[in-house]
Simulated scan of single mutants.
Amino acid sequence: MSIENTQAILTSHSVTITDIKAAQQRLLGIVHHTPVITSSSVNERTQSQVFFKCENFQRTGAFKFRGAYNALTQLSTEQKKTGVITYSSGNHGQAIALGGKLLNIPTTVVMPEDAPPVKQTATRAYGAEVILYNRQTTNREELTKGLAHERQLTLIPPYDHPHVIAGQGTTALELIQEVGELDLLLVCCGGGGLISGCAIATKALLPNCRVIGVEPELADDATRSFYSKTLQTVHNPNTIADGARTPSLGKITFPLVLEYVDDMVTVSESAIIRTMLFLWERLKIVIEPTGVLAAAALLEGVITAPGAKIGVIISGGNVDLSQIGELLTTRYYSR
């Protein structure tokens, strides 16, 4: 089956709570049931009750393993034998690589040359072939599709795929099953796979819970798309939140965001860094810049909801510790 026909079939499918619950069963015993952490200092600061769903403790250090593994398990025998390819700034690539290793599926990951070294190293360590490209001169989607056609590999994109979206939705499903009612759920947004899946799960279980997406000011394509109702793009945004450097929402995720998400907001680079360091200090856990986007909106006062019960998805923890000094001296950072 050609890539074009496969994409057409995928686009025609919607994602439902049934798909997300089926994904949860598929992932049972494979993914980590990640912890939910609370902090009295955070509750005091926000005047609300906050529950952090810590996907930085997930396998490969991010929520991406949920969607990648769910998609890989549903490939045909022939597709598994031939292998898969994806493009990723790091976390999805690691997830595909580990999933492929567990399922004995050959994997190839197209990554930008400036992807954090820790993510490149981990992806190779899980057994994937890593192909690097220059973000300034190369379109990663076109490069990957060309390689997929040339090598007859199955493309599993990082967010615009119903099986990936369903897998990511298990993050919110787990959170709600553990803590019960929520008034508000805050989720980071790059290509929209996580927020789409989480919003679908949340609206099915808690119809009155508001779902708000958060992205960097420097990569605000999803926010602009949400308000204009027209798909917007951003070219190679220079944000420290590398997981949110996607050019736009996808053909599948864009309509899902419009249907299920209640609002979209942005946070500054300095807010991202301040929040990351604050959570390192107070929660005693390592979180990457993209991973703190949702928390930054709450802790920096972009979103206020006194007295509310709030879920916050911490999406990942794959930060390159050797670059912390650089982050602290960046022009974006201020206490």
Results as ranks from 00 to 15, higher is better:
I9Y: 13
L10N: 06
T11A: 15
S14H: 10
V15A: 04
S41K: 03
S41T: 14
E44G: 04
E44M: 02
R45Q: 11
T46I: 01
Q47F: 00
F52H: 01
E55I: 10
E55N: 06
N56Q: 15
N56A: 15
R59I: 15
K64C: 10
K64A: 08
G67L: 07
K80S: 06
T82Y: 01
G99Y: 02
G100W: 05
V110D: 02
P117R: 13
T123K: 07
Y126T: 11
Y126F: 15
I131V: 15
Y133Q: 01
R135K: 14
H149C: 11
Q152L: 09
P157I: 01
G167Q: 03
T170V: 08
I176Y: 04
Q177H: 06
L184F: 11
V187Q: 10
L194G: 09
G197L: 13
C198Q: 09
T202V: 14
L205T: 11
N208P: 04
G213N: 07
E217S: 10
L218Q: 08
D220L: 02
D220K: 01
D221N: 09
F226K: 07
Y227R: 06
T230D: 14
L231N: 10
H235K: 13
N238D: 11
L249C: 11
Y260T: 08
D262A: 13
E269H: 03
T275G: 06
L277R: 11
F278T: 12
E281Y: 06
V292S: 09
A297Q: 04
V319C: 03
